[in-house]
């Protein structure tokens, strides 16, 4: 149990470091095509323990989002998206629950299987990205940009997360 907590804290710090030092500098703009933004930090929120109390989870997500916001200079945008997706994580998990329920506390591909993990990650990430770019644009006037950004960033980020899973494949 202690290991679960410490591993999660380490993962959050590690993912945030990658996000804020590495991914923030990567600029994937091709001419007018400015729709790809990499974000890997939602994976740390998705992998938080299953039995974590929901209010605590939401507060943790808010804190992570807030830290990202400070570095991205967009106070409230990432925090809002993280809070949103943390609240809906419960319903996503219920929606794609394995046949015999969640027996293990760690929601990793190691404990369950890769198909389940990828579909869970996809839903989680898509919701996060959509909320993130909606809050960033802040008006339904920019619906086209919001959708394009959500789709392309979602694909790129999910690809990155899959690579990370293949490299690390954490147990907790």
């Amino acid at each position: 149990m202690n290991k679960l907590v410490s591993r999660n804290i380490i993962r959050i710090i590690f993912v945030l470091l990658i996000q804020l030092i590495l991914l923030k500098r990567i600029n994937l703009t091709f001419g007018d095509f400015n729709y790809v933004h990499l974000s890997i930090y939602p994976v740390a929120l998705a992998l938080l323990p299953y039995k974590m109390p929901r209010p605590l989870l939401i507060i943790a997500a808010f804190a992570v989002g807030f830290i990202v916001d400070i570095f991205y200079n967009s106070l409230g945008v990432h925090a809002g998206a993280c809070t949103f997706v943390a609240f809906f994580r419960y319903y996503i998990l219920n929606f794609i629950a394995p046949r015999d329920g969640y027996k293990k506390d760690a929601l990793t591909a190691y404990e369950y299987n890769i198909t389940w993990f990828l579909s869970y990650m996809a839903m989680f990430l898509f919701l996060h990205q959509f909320m993130l770019y909606s809050l960033e644009a802040f008006s339904p006037v920019y619906m086209k940009e919001i959708i394009l950004r959500t789709i392309f960033s979602f694909i790129a980020s999910l690809f990155l997360i899959t690579i990370g899973k293949l490299i690390f494949n954490p147990k907790y």
Binding site: P55, I58, F62, G76, G80, F84, L135
Partner: peptide
């Protein structure tokens, strides 16, 4: 409690967004 925390934090986020971001 989860829902309340969610709502409160979202409102706080909206407050932050609308106060500290120029375009928003």
């Amino acid at each position: 409690s989860a829902f309340l925390v969610f709502i409160l934090l979202e409102i706080f986020c909206l407050f932050l967004i609308t106060n500290y971001n120029k375009s928003q």
